[in-house]
């Protein structure tokens, strides 16, 4: 398998001779469905470097979470099939042995999830839940691991960390639970953080604080972050590069400002247009007609053609569309992306 480092989106400079932090290629995931299989992630490909953030955007059911779980090797082994390649610092993970993957999770890759409170175990103190990870991966003693946990809680701005470490998750607010999750994800100083909609369930002011914290820690730990969200506003604030998913596949990839100001895929443009924050007060909002097709019922040809205002019958609804290289660090999955001049958002309102 050749290392396709030059194709890194976002023009992220790959230092010659050094593999990108995370390299995903041809990632395909299928689940058992009745007697057969149903594909939910199709041929996903992206790279991510240290110290950078890749925003993975898409509506619910587009396959974002499944993609991230496949990267972590966390999909149920008996009812799912993963193909393609996931390399962390050049090491292949897709066919790695189970024990090897287990060692790597939590140590080299940290992950946080959408529902912070439910992601913490209600039956243990938050300190114990972090210390346990340090004992497992760093071989620390109980005492040292506990001290490390308190230190991490302090790092994620939990006031009075030494006392709070002895508290249980139900004694924390949602935003604090997410910081506790972040402390657990970073306690072993991983290179990669996967954040699956980490602020979707949080209030906007709490979200703002969380995002700021993530940015600070990214700088401090030189973290690569795979940031999953459906909120283009959050993407604009957090991501260096963006990959947009629709119906299980990537439809566009670009550096964040390019994507926002000059989208090349009609779906991206539609999402940008229907984003209320972009519109100000209006009599009618712009919207994408129709609804997201269900898994297993993806249309033939371009999967977006049933909702696309630029669709060209005879072309768009026949053959699958390939993800084609566009400008520097850009790719789009649209036969007409070269000829369409899609509207993005400007710097000013």
């Amino acid at each position: 398998m050749a290392v396709d480092a030059t194709a890194a989106p976002g023009g992220a400079p790959n230092v010659p001779g050094r593999a990108p932090l995370l390299e995903v290629d041809g990632l395909t995931v299928e689940f058992r469905s009745g007697a057969g299989r149903v594909r939910v992630v199709d041929d996903v490909r992206f790279t991510l470097d240290r110290g950078r953030t890749l925003g993975l955007v898409g509506e619910s059911g587009s396959g974002k979470t499944v993609t991230s779980l496949a990267v972590m090797g966390l999909l149920p082994p008996r009812s799912s099939w993963v193909e393609g390649s996931v390399r962390l610092d050049g090491q292949e993970l897709v066919d790695a042995a189970g024990a090897e993957l287990t060692d790597l999770r939590g140590r080299d890759i940290g992950m946080i999830f959408q529902e912070p409170r439910r992601s913490l175990n209600p039956a243990f103190t938050v300190g114990e839940q972090i210390a346990e990870i340090a004992r497992r991966h760093l071989g620390l003693s109980r005492k040292d691991a506990w001290d490390r946990a308190v230190e991490m809680l302090d790092t994620v701005n939990i006031a009075d960390a030494a006392r709070r470490a002895r508290h249980y998750p139900h004694e924390f607010s949602g935003g604090m639970c997410q910081r506790v999750m972040l402390a657990g994800a970073l306690v072993c100083r991983p290179k990669l953080l996967i954040a699956d909609e980490p602020t979707t369930a949080l209030d906007v002011t709490v979200q703002a604080r969380m995002l700021r914290l993530m940015n600070e820690l990214q700088a401090e730990f030189d973290l690569g972050i795979l940031f999953i969200t459906h909120d283009l506003g959050v993407v604009a604030e957090m991501a260096d590069d963006v990959a947009v998913m629709y119906a299980g596949e990537l439809v566009e990839q670009a550096p964040v400002d390019d994507l926002l100001s000059r989208p090349e895929h009609p779906y991206t443009a539609g999402l940008l247009g229907s984003s209320p924050d972009v519109q100000g007060h209006v009599e009618r909002l712009r919207s994408i007609p129709g609804s997201v097709p269900a898994v297993g019922a993806w249309p033939a040809g371009c999967r977006f053609h049933t909702r696309c205002e630029h669709a060209r019958p005879g072309t768009c609804d026949t053959d699958p569309v390939a993800l084609a290289d566009g400008g520097p660090g850009r790719r789009a999955r649209c036969v007409r992306s070269g000829e369409l001049h899609l509207e993005g958002v400007g710097v000013d309102a």
Partner: peptide
């Protein structure tokens, strides 16, 4: 939380 425990490599 079980998914979290797995994601932490326990």
């Amino acid at each position: 939380y079980v998914r979290t425990a797995r994601a932490r490599g326990l």
